[in-house]
């Protein structure tokens, strides 16, 4: 009896979830399929799902006109530096805010919270003027530094680390471990999944960032992928949809792979912090 009810519930649930999934991914399916269509077919009305005449022309054109390895490498360098930096810096700060008592802790936390709430556009111009006065325009440092210590990551890390039981840390202290040792040996291992989460979110933000790299990179050799793609996909008076779609696919793919691989940790990271 119970079994059958579960079975029916499972069928209903799967139906609903699959319908939801269809809605969520339909735009992507259409995007991927359309990236193999010629320019004429992309614009055809009514639109087609399957490419009538599949072609790699969009990708070929994209890779011919774009120094793809260069921009890809730049994007990876920036995203990896930003991600690693944030993981180290923000987890340490998160630990301090969550578990240590020190002068100015509250003030720092309020500043972090406050910064979450300032619209990014407000600081854009002063930030650029600052970076140019530091002589960092068109350098990786200029691309990376302003995003190396993001308030939102400190906030997330603090929330995760708060839920680590104090007893655990206390017993280590009794054993004579210093705070750095505790952070390195106990806190970081327990926050592994949390680090995966913060890492993915940070990588994503950096990977998709457009305006900052556009402004900081003054020569092509420092362009990241989104900046480079914007060069060729959007004309002044006309959009080449086929190219734009192919470009979108190339930019989404690496993120998708990373997320698919790490998704298990990603979800666990948001919840489990030492609650084993």
């Amino acid at each position: 009896m119970k079994r059958r009810r579960d079975r029916n519930a499972a069928i209903v649930l799967h139906t609903v979830l699959i319908a939801g999934l269809a809605i969520m991914i339909a735009p992507f399916v259409w995007m991927v399929l359309s990236s193999f269509k010629g320019e004429g077919e992309v614009r055809r009305t009514p639109p087609t799902w399957l490419p009538a005449d599949p072609t790699l022309a969009n990708y070929r054109e994209l890779f011919e006109r774009l120094d793809f390895p260069l921009y890809f490498t730049n994007s990876v360098i920036v995203a990896v530096l930003v991600t690693v930096g944030n993981l180290l810096i923000c987890s340490a700060t998160g630990y301090a805010l969550a578990k240590l008592r020190f002068l100015g802790r509250r003030a720092l936390f309020v500043l972090v919270l406050g910064n979450l709430m300032v619209p990014p556009m407000a600081t854009f111009v002063p930030q650029f003027v600052l970076v140019s006065n530091l002589g960092l325009v068109n350098t990786f440092a200029g691309l990376v530094l302003p995003n190396l210590a993001l308030a939102v990551n400190v906030f997330l890390m603090r929330q995760f680390i708060l839920s680590i039981p104090d007893d655990l840390l206390e017993s280590a202290r009794v054993d004579g471990a210093g705070e750095w040792r505790i952070y390195w040996r106990i806190v970081l291992p327990l926050t592994g999944p949390a680090l995966a989460t913060v890492g993915i979110l940070t990588f994503l933000g950096s990977w998709n960032n457009f305006l900052w790299p556009l402004v900081v990179a003054t020569t092509e050799d420092k362009y990241t992928l989104p900046v480079a793609l914007a060069l060729y996909s959007v004309g002044q008076n006309q959009t080449q949809y086929g190219l734009l779609l192919a470009g979108s696919v190339t930019i989404i793919l690496p993120i998708l792979v990373i997320f698919a691989v790490l998704q298990r940790h990603f979800v666990r990271g948001i919840a489990t912090t030492g609650l084993k």
């Binding site: 301090a96 020190f102 972090v112 600052l130 530094l145």
Partner: peptide
């Protein structure tokens, strides 16, 4: 406490 928070605080103060 500040030995943990300093790198963040410095970058945060300057760039944000």
């Amino acid at each position: 406490g500040w030995s943990f928070a300093l790198p963040f605080a410095a970058l945060f103060a300057v760039f944000l």
